[in-house]
Design a protein around this nucleic acid. Sequence first.
DNA 1: TGTGAAATCATGATGTA
DNA 2: TACATCATGATTTCACA
Lengths: 159, 159
Amino acid sequence: MNQDYIEPLPQIDELDEKILRLITKNARIPFLEVARECGVSGAAIHQRVQRLLNLGVISGSEFVVNPAKLGYNTCAYMGVYLEKAKFHTQVAEALRKIPEIVECHYTTGQYAIFVKIQTKTNKHLKKLIDEELQEIEGIARTETFISLEMDFKRQVAIK
Amino acid sequence: MNQDYIEPLPQIDELDEKILRLITKNARIPFLEVARECGVSGAAIHQRVQRLLNLGVISGSEFVVNPAKLGYNTCAYMGVYLEKAKFHTQVAEALRKIPEIVECHYTTGQYAIFVKIQTKTNKHLKKLIDEELQEIEGIARTETFISLEMDFKRQVAIK
DNA sequence: TGTGAAATCATGATGTA
DNA sequence: TACATCATGATTTCACA
């Protein structure tokens, strides 16, 4: 018995994996360089990347900002308790409007919703919790852990 | 009184911000297109981006993979209790060796360490916890929340 | 910082296995 | 279906103002 829902997987071959390993570490790498490393033509890489985008295996690319260099020195995780489970969606919508909330999940366990927050300072975080979050209709209470230091962060490993 | 340590901020002007807003949403955007939007030359954008990299405001670029399309259907957060606080570093080092652990923070509050995990299935997660995590010297116990659904994820907003 | 020219690259069409 | 080759227009990059 397997209780997990598994979504159908696209066919990814070794060339795709090699491409993914390269472009997930550096989105600006010239496709011709990828091509040379893989021993195929540039157009082949171009077509493969397009296909991986179409399949949704990759959703796009981004330059990664360091929040601290923009003055965002506090990173926190917060569990949210709801007054009633059915407030799920409206609370998530309200959270989405707060730009300091950078990630939001529906979760099992003690919290209904779990979020990641980036604020300028601890004071700014406290203010956000007191003045914005506790005011959201449907939130009963919250529990916050501040990240003292991020030790590492990476994407899921390509086989 | 302000208890927060603030790291010195690089000078970021409006042009930098405009560039950041564009390249953090699409790392492959041609710099010439950015240049046209900003009314400067392509080389100016190139140099600005280089400077932002040197300053550490951006740490690089990446194509963003969708874990589910690679068979990683379970996302979880886990709080780690340590036997002794001084086990901090060695536990973090052990965690870094487990590829399914994609993010690791030192935190305040009830947990000493807080991690994000991507596994193929719930079963795979359970196996990871039972066979790998609980075996790590220094970990007392762990508490896991499974993400049923990610509602949203974004980078910190550029002013 | 910015400009412009040379080197490099992306990308679409076409042919082939 | 996946890839190579080729042509062209765009982009990156570097020397220089």
